[in-house]
Write a protein that binds this DNA or RNA. Sequence first.
DNA 1: AATGAATGAGGTTTCATTCAT
DNA 2: TATGAATGAAACCTCATTCAT
Lengths: 215, 215, 215, 215
Amino acid sequence: MSTHSFLNKEKTLDSEESDRKSRRTIQKKNQILEAAAQLFAEKGFHRTTTKDIALAADVSEGTLYNYFDNKEDLLFGIMEKLVDNQQLGRQLSLAELDDAQDFLVAMLNERRDYVQSNHDMLQSVLSEILVDPDLRHKYYHELVLPGIDTLEQHLTHRQRSGQIKKLDERLLSRFLVSIFLGMFLLDVIHDPLIETHWEQYVRVVADTIFNGIAF
Amino acid sequence: MSTHSFLNKEKTLDSEESDRKSRRTIQKKNQILEAAAQLFAEKGFHRTTTKDIALAADVSEGTLYNYFDNKEDLLFGIMEKLVDNQQLGRQLSLAELDDAQDFLVAMLNERRDYVQSNHDMLQSVLSEILVDPDLRHKYYHELVLPGIDTLEQHLTHRQRSGQIKKLDERLLSRFLVSIFLGMFLLDVIHDPLIETHWEQYVRVVADTIFNGIAF
Amino acid sequence: MSTHSFLNKEKTLDSEESDRKSRRTIQKKNQILEAAAQLFAEKGFHRTTTKDIALAADVSEGTLYNYFDNKEDLLFGIMEKLVDNQQLGRQLSLAELDDAQDFLVAMLNERRDYVQSNHDMLQSVLSEILVDPDLRHKYYHELVLPGIDTLEQHLTHRQRSGQIKKLDERLLSRFLVSIFLGMFLLDVIHDPLIETHWEQYVRVVADTIFNGIAF
Amino acid sequence: MSTHSFLNKEKTLDSEESDRKSRRTIQKKNQILEAAAQLFAEKGFHRTTTKDIALAADVSEGTLYNYFDNKEDLLFGIMEKLVDNQQLGRQLSLAELDDAQDFLVAMLNERRDYVQSNHDMLQSVLSEILVDPDLRHKYYHELVLPGIDTLEQHLTHRQRSGQIKKLDERLLSRFLVSIFLGMFLLDVIHDPLIETHWEQYVRVVADTIFNGIAF
DNA sequence: AATGAATGAGGTTTCATTCAT
DNA sequence: TATGAATGAAACCTCATTCAT
C-alpha cells in the first residue's frame, strides 16, 4: 500500500506536470488563434502575414511554427474551435420548449449569439471556404451538415407531434440554414438594419415562417 | 434604321473608328474578365497569378495592364459586369404577375437563373468582399441595396393592394435577401440537395413564406 | 517560286529572331551557371545563397528563377554542361595512337585537361553527389559509366590486338577510372605534389600500369 | 593485474569518480556521433537537422550542445574518430609480410576493411571536405598525409631491399592513395561491380601494379 | 497596341542556437 | 546535467508590376 501511494504520488506529480504543460500549450495555441482570427477577419487570410500574427500574438514567428504546421493550419485550428464552440452551445441547448414558435425564436437567438461571439473566427474562415476545397469540405461536414441534421430531427419531432405541417424536412432544414447563413452574410457586409433591429427582425422572421405572409 | 440613326446621333464624326476601337477594347476586356472570373472561382483571387490569367485569356501579362490598372481592378471589372447583368435581368423582369405567390416563385427562379449564369463571377467576388472593405462597399451599394430596394417596393405594393400582411417591409425584404444569399452559399459549398431538388425546394420555400409552417 | 522565297524570307526572319532569343537565353543560362559553379566550388552548394549567385551573375534573384526551376536545378544544369564538355572532348579524342602506352599517357593528359578546365563545375557537383541520390544517379549514368564503357572498349581492342594482357576489362577499366577519380580528389584536397610534378607523375603512373613495379 | 595498476598510476585521487564521468561523457559523445554520422551519410550534413540528430541519438537538442560546441563540431568529432580508428588499424597492421605483392594485397584489404567499417563516417565527412577549408585541411593533414607517409616509408624500405623498382616514392605513394580514394568514391557512387567482385578486383589491381599490363 | 524578360520587395518557412527550468 | 520551448536571422521562392522592344 505504501508503495502504491508512493507510485501514485509520482504519477500525480508527473501528470500534474504534463497537465501544466499541455494546458500552457493549449493556452498558447489559443493566444495565437485569436490573434490570427482577428487579423484574418480584418484583412483576410492572404493579406495577413505570419509576421503580423506573431506580433499580434506576442510570440516570435518561429514559435508559430512550433504550434502549427503552416499558415493554412491556422485556419484549420480556427475551424476546430468553431466546431467545439458549436457543440458546446448545443449542449446547453434549446431545452424542451413546448411551443414550436418559441423554439424557433430561441434558435434564432442562439444562432445570433453564436455568430456574435465567434464573429472573427467565422469571418476568417468563410472567405477561404469559398476558395479552398479542403476547408470547404471540412466546414460543410463539421459545421453545416451537423446543423442541418439537428434541425431535421427537431422538425421531424415537431411534425410527428402535430405542431407543424408535414413539409419535406430535408428541404425545410436547408431553408432555415440558408436563412442563418444569409443573415450572417448581411451582418458581415455591414447591413445596418439587422443589427439595430434584431428583436423586431426575429419576430418578423419567426412570424413569417410560422404563419406566412399571406392573409 | 431609325434606331440605327438614333444610336449614331450620339456619336462624334470619327465615330466609326473609335467605335471599332472601343468595341475591340470591350471585347478584349471581357475576354480577360471571363478568364479571370473562372480562375478566381476555381482557386480564389490570391492563388490566381496574373500569369495564369494572361495564359487563360490568351494575352500577355503586359497586355493585362493595358486594360486594367492592377490585379485588384479585375475584381472591380467583374463586379461591374455583375451589376450590368443584374440590371439587365431586372428590366425583362417579373412582369406584372397578379398572384403574389406566383410572383415569389418567379422571383426565386429569376435569382436562381442569375446565380447560375453568373456563378463564377459571383464566387470570384464574394470571397474577397468578405475581406476587402472597398469591394464590400461597392457590392453592398451596387448589388445588395438595389435588390433590397426593389424588393421593398414590391412588398409595399403588395401590402397596399392587400395581398400580403403588413409586416415591416425593410425587415421582410432583408429576410428574403438573406434567403437568396444563404441559398447561394449552400450552392457554393456544394450542398447537393438544393441543386438536385430545386423545383421542390422552391415550392417549400414559397409555401412556407406564404402560408407558414404552422397548422 | 516567288511565294516560296517570300515565305523563306519570313521564315528566316522568324528563325533569326527566335534564334537570337534562344541564343541570348543560352548565354544568360551560362552566365548564371558559371557564377553558380564558381561559388559552389568555393563555399559549397548549401553555403551559397541564391542572392550570392544572383549578385555574381549580375542578375536579380527573380531572374534566376526565370531560367531555373529552383536552386537544385542549377546543379543539374552544371551536370549537363559537364556531360556536354565530356562528349566534346571525346570527339577530338585520342585518335589512333598505335602504341598502347602512348595512348595511356594521352588519356591521362586528356583527363587532366578536362578536370582542369571544368574544375569548378566538377567540384560543385561532386560534394552534392555524395549526398543527393538523384544527382548521384545522374552523375554515375551520364558521366562515370560512359567513361567506363569507352575504356572497356579500348581495352578490349588492345587486348585483341595483343598489345596488353588479358585481364578482365570490366575490372581493369574500373581500376583506371578510380585512378582518375582519386587523382581529382587529391587535386581538390590541394595535395601540392601532383600539381607541381604532373609530368613525372604521369610517367610514373603509366610506367607502373604498363610494366609494374616489380623487378 | 599489473596492467591494471599501471593504468591506475596515471590517475589522481578522485580518479574513480571523474573516470566514471568521463567514461559516460565519452559514451554519450559516441552515441551522438554515431547517430550524426549515419544521418550525414544518408542525407548529407546540411539536410540533417540538429533535431534529427537529437532524435536519433535519443537525447534532447539542448544536450547536443552540452557535448559539442555547434553542429560543425560534430564533423570534427567524426573526423577524430576516423583518425583514431585509422591509427588503431595501423598498429595491428600489416605485420612484416616478406613478399611485396602479398603486402600490397594485404594493404588493399586492410583499406577495404577500414572503409567498410567506417563507411558512414567517411561519407559524412567527405562531402563537406570538398567544401569546407578547415575540415579539408584537417582531413588532409591527419588522414591523408599520414597515410601517404606510411606508404612512402614502406616503399622506400622495399626499394632498398630490392623488392621493387626505384620509382619516386612520393609519386608512387600518391598513386596508391589515389587508387584507394577512387575506390572509395566508386563504392559511394554505388558502382556495383567492385562490391560484388572485390576478390577478383584486388587480384587485378595487385597484379597490374606489380607486373603491369604489358606483355 | 502587344509582348514577356527583368525586377525586387516581401512572403513563408526552416533551423541552429540559447536559456530558464 | 538534461530538457525543449522560444527565438529570429536568413534562406528560398513567388509574383505583381514595369518597360524596352
